[in-house]
Design a protein around this nucleic acid. Structure first.
Length: 428
RNA sequence: GUGGGUAUAGCUCAGUCGGUUAGAGCGCCAGGUUGUGGCCCUGGAGGUCGCCGGUUCAAUUCCGGUUACUCACCCCA
């Protein structure tokens, strides 16, 4: 029996899971403020949805999907991203028949069969937002500002926003052709991967990391100068709103995204200190995807954030957002009747919403105090035979060793003391 | 899928130029304090030296393979 987790997966242990809960709570709060509601889709979908939605020739579809045949001989795929399922749910449940745009978010596990690396896992967690049914540039801007709010709420700093427009079916083909022709003229000068890209997706050559390739791009035409009027106006309006909101960004004409469905606005948010996998969020407009999935054409825009990467970049710096939770009280006892009293008291206090710890290992009082200290308990109540006899006990504030007497029959005395403990006030 | 690095206690790592009982710090447990934590002191538990094979009188050490981790490419969150 193997006790190792599958490659590229992670256990989130108790000393980390509270951080996830905080990030998730921030996300839900901010989505709520922006008016986005959660849409929960299945973990797996019909394989065809991703093949058509993401694009047959993308890396994800060609070699990264967890695809299996189910017992009914259907081809199923663990979702590698969240947008296509949202579009499917939008169409299947006829959300377009309700008030538009449809504003939804999702939060959950995605799966891609890739070689694991820092910030890249086979099962990873994405939070994403989608707005379907409107082409208003205001929504493009919300897709950039919303994740920024999330990062800021988590105490993350030092991220950079890159934006670009990659045009639409009216203007992109011409640009793509122009690039391709230019590259083909000196094809041998490019690296091997780029030579392949020239055929398949010449835009991808733009963000190649090989120096030789970059040096060949000096006088290539920029997408931003090849946009049709509609796309150009749209991009200008997006920038105007961003400026008005004082959002810092850089226009990166070489920013290209991997999925086929993007049109017009694309953006990425990067943490430069994160290593090679440094994009903590990205997205863009996908005005053609709804039609591609078989619905009436609907403009749409969205983004996704990789939570492992957010947590990773947060781990690089101290932040006050992530305070480890502390137990309110430890009830120390000596066994026998004192244990019975401690159990009963713990039960009552827990009913009042207090986090109450007990000893389950038969430890001595001294050892129980050590445990309480190790757990960072705010206070300890020692319950011995004298205390049981008199129905009174000492409550000790661990940070200062201050002690007060409490009446074991009056639970509200303990509650009041805990309020002070949580506030860091003196008890007396 | 391609290339590099690593694998010794729960964690971080020493170490063995191939040789008898493989170490440290931290953590864990107990005691010093027969009813009071942090600091200090003492003691204890805990390892098939990743796995399989080869060379050798002898392998944790050398060699090959394998798996995992890790970094980078590719790509992406």
């Amino acid at each position: 029996m193997s006790v190792t987790r599958p490659r590229g997966t992670n256990d989130v242990l108790p000393d980390q899971s509270y951080k996830w809960q905080i990030v998730e709570a921030k996300i839900r709060e901010i989505c709520h403020n922006f008016g986005y509601q959660e849409l929960r889709t299945p973990i797996f979908e019909h394989t065809e949805l991703f093949e058509r939605g993401i694009g047959e020739t993308t890396d994800i579809v060609e070699k990264e999907m967890y695809t299996f045949i189910d017992r009914g001989n259907r081809s199923m795929t663990l979702r590698p991203e969240g947008t296509a399922p949202v579009v499917r749910a939008f169409l299947e449940n006829k959300l377009y028949a309700q008030a538009m745009p449809a504003k939804v978010y999702y939060l959950g596990a995605m799966f891609r069969y890739e070689r694991p690396q820092a910030g890249r896992y086979r099962q990873f967690t994405q939070f994403g937002v989608e707005a379907l049914g409107s082409s208003d540039p205001m929504l493009d801007v919300e897709m950039i500002t919303l994740p920024i709010k999330v990062y800021q709420a988590c105490g993350l700093e030092g991220f950079k926003v890159h934006i670009n427009s990659i045009g639409c079916p009216d203007c992109r083909p011409a640009y793509r052709k122009a690039l391709q022709d230019k590259f083909l003229a000196q094809q041998e000068a490019f690296c091997m991967t780029c030579q392949g890209r020239i055929e398949r997706n010449p835009l991808r050559v733009l963000d190649c990391k090989v120096k030789e390739c970059q040096s060949l791009l000096a006088d290539i035409p920029l997408v931003t100068e090849s946009l049709c009027k509609n796309c150009g106006d749209h991009f200008a309006q997006v920038r105007t709103y961003l400026d008005q909101l004082d959002v810092k960004y850089v226009i990166n004409p070489k920013l290209v995204r991997g999925f086929d469905y993007y049109t017009k606005t694309v953006f990425e948010i990067i943490v430069p200190t994160l290593g090679s996998q440094n994009a903590i969020g990205g997205g863009g407009r996908y005005d053609g995807l709804v039609a591609e999935c078989g619905g009436e054409p609907q403009p749409a825009v969205g983004f996704a954030v990789g939570l492992e990467r957010v947590l990773l970049s947060l781990a690089q710096k101290e932040t006050t957002v992530f305070q480890a939770p502390k137990p309110d009280l430890f009830l120390a006892q000596f066994g026998g009747a004192t244990k019975d009293v401690a159990i009963a008291l713990a039960h009552k206090l827990r009913d009042q919403g207090l986090w109450v710890e007990l000893d389950y290992m038969g430890k001595s009082l001294r050892a129980q105090m050590k445990v309480a200290n190790k757990l960072n308990c705010l206070g300890v109540i020692v319950i011995g035979e004298d205390e049981v006899a008199q129905n009174r006990a000492k409550l000790r504030k661990m940070s200062t060793s201050e002690e007060i007497e409490i009446d074991l029959n009056h639970v509200e005395q303990v509650e009041q003391a805990v309020v002070k403990l949580r506030e860091g006030q003196v008890l007396a």
